[in-house]
Simulated scan of single mutants.
Amino acid sequence: MKNRLVRGTMSNHFQSTLAALAVIVAGCGDPSSATGDGGAPAGGSSSSMDGGVSPPPDGGGAGDGGGGDEDASVPPPGTLSARYPGDEGIRDDPAVLFHDDFEAGWGRWDGPTADTRTLHIEADPAAAHGGQGYLRSTVTTADLAEDMYISSSTWVTHERVDAIYWRFHARFPELAPNPHHWVRMAAGTEEWDWSGLANTVPAGDEGFWFDFDTNTDDVFNFYAYWYKMRSGRCNDGTATPGCAGDQGTTYYYGNVFEPPGQAPFPRDRWFCIEMHARANTVGERDGALAFWIDGAPIGDYRPGYPDGTWLRAQFHTAGCEFSACTPPEPFEGFDFRSSEDVRFKSFMLDAYYERDSDARRRAEMEERGLTVSDARTILYDDVVIATERIGCRR
C-alpha cells in the first residue's frame, strides 16, 4: 500500500476512500460520508457565515479581520504584513519560522531541492504575485495516464510550536480538476514522521495532521486526522458493531469541516490563503482551526463555536437534514493530542492527484458544460509560517 507521507511520497488515499464510500452507499444510502470529495451534501447546512465570525481565544482566529468585505491589500493592524509592507524584512522577524518568495530559487525547502517533472520555480514579473519569482505545479492528463498517484509537493520541517499561522498566495490559471488533497499541516514529536496514512488513527502521543482541500465547487474544507477523530461506521462517529447506521465495517478517514455559504475562489487571479491552528492543552478540548480567504474570515472551529451537528465523520455547521441528524450543538473544540511533546512541525504545498478521482471530477465539470484543460496548474508565491497572524502581502 502506498501512502501520502509528510516527505511527499504518493498514496492510495483516494482508493481507500472510494471503498469506504461504496460501503456507505450500499448501507443506508446516507451521502454524508467523510471522504471530503465533492461539494456540500444534499440537504446540508442551511445557514452561512456571511455576517462574519467571532474570534477564537488568544486574539488569533477568523474574526480578526471582521466581515466578508475585507480588503486584502490592507492587512489587519498588528499583523506581520502590516509591519512589513511588501514582506520586506519579514523573514527576520522573530515570529517567522519559514519564508519563501521564490526569488532566490530552490534551497529553503527540505525538498525538493531542484525542479521536478511537476514543480518549477519560474521568474516572470508579469506572472508572479510579487517580485518575479513564483512556484508552478503542473500535472497533466498524460502524467496521470502514466502514474495513478501524483504528489506534486514541496515540504519543510520547522521549529516545533503549539500554535501556528500559515499564509501563501495561490493562483489557478486554468479550468481543471482541483487536487484530490491539497495543503498539509502536521504536528508530532521530534521523531514522528508519518502524516498522510489513510484509514489510520494516529496515536495521541505521536502526532496528528490535517489537509486544507478544495473540491469541484471551488470551496474549501479541513480534512483532519487525530487520535479522537470519528469513524464513518456509525451515525454517532463510533465504531461499535450494531450501532445506529452501522455500515458493517470500521474505517477512519479524515473528518470533514466545510464552512457553508462559501463563494467559489477566483480563477486566474492571485488570492490569499491564511490558516491558524492551535494544539490543545493536554486533557482539554481547547484546540482550534481557522482560515481566511483574501483577509475575510471563512472557517472557525474552536470550543463552543460554531453550532453544528456531527454525523459520522463530518461536522455540519448549523446542522443537517438527513434522517439521522441530531439538533445542532456548540462545537466541542479539538482534543488533538495527549502529550505536550506533540507540536506543529511541518508544512506541505502538496497538489495530490489520483487518476480515478481526477477523472470523476473532470466528468462532473464537463457535465456542467465547462471546457476543461488537460493541464492542472497551480501557482504559489509569498509563503510564510509564523507564530503570529501574518495577513496578506500588500
Rank of each mutant, 00 (worst) to 15 (best):
N215K: 10
H158G: 13
S137C: 04
M229P: 00
D218Q: 09
S195P: 11
V219Q: 08
A163K: 10
D147K: 07
G204D: 02
G207K: 06
T216I: 05
E191S: 14
D218W: 14
P173T: 09
A176T: 05
D213C: 14
T200Y: 14
A170G: 06
T154S: 06
G207A: 13
E191L: 10
A170F: 02
V139H: 04
L197T: 10
G196V: 14
Y165W: 15
N178W: 04
A163P: 00
Y223P: 10
F172C: 10
A187V: 13
K228V: 02
R171E: 07
I150W: 05
S153Q: 08
M148D: 06
W182Y: 14
Y165H: 15
G196F: 11
M229L: 07
V183S: 08
R160D: 12
D147M: 02
D205Q: 05
V139Y: 03
D143Q: 00
H181Q: 15
W209P: 07
M185N: 13
W226F: 15
Q132G: 10
D162K: 11
W166L: 14
V183I: 15
V156P: 11
R136E: 08
T216F: 07
S137I: 05
T154V: 12
E190C: 04
V139Q: 03
T154I: 11
T140H: 06
T154F: 08
T154A: 03
F220G: 05
R230G: 06
G204Q: 00
R230H: 10
R230Q: 10
W209I: 06
E146I: 01
P179A: 03
F172W: 12
L144T: 03
T189L: 10
D217V: 01
L144Q: 05
P202S: 05
S137Q: 01
I150V: 15
R167V: 04
L175R: 08
W226K: 03
A163C: 03
P177S: 02
I164K: 09
D205I: 06
T216W: 01
V201H: 11
Y227M: 04
R230N: 10
A142E: 05
H181L: 15
D218S: 11
N178Q: 12
V139I: 01
Y225V: 08
T154L: 08
V201R: 15
Q132T: 15
W192S: 14
W209G: 11
F210Y: 15
L144E: 03
V201Y: 04
G133N: 06
A198F: 09
F208I: 12
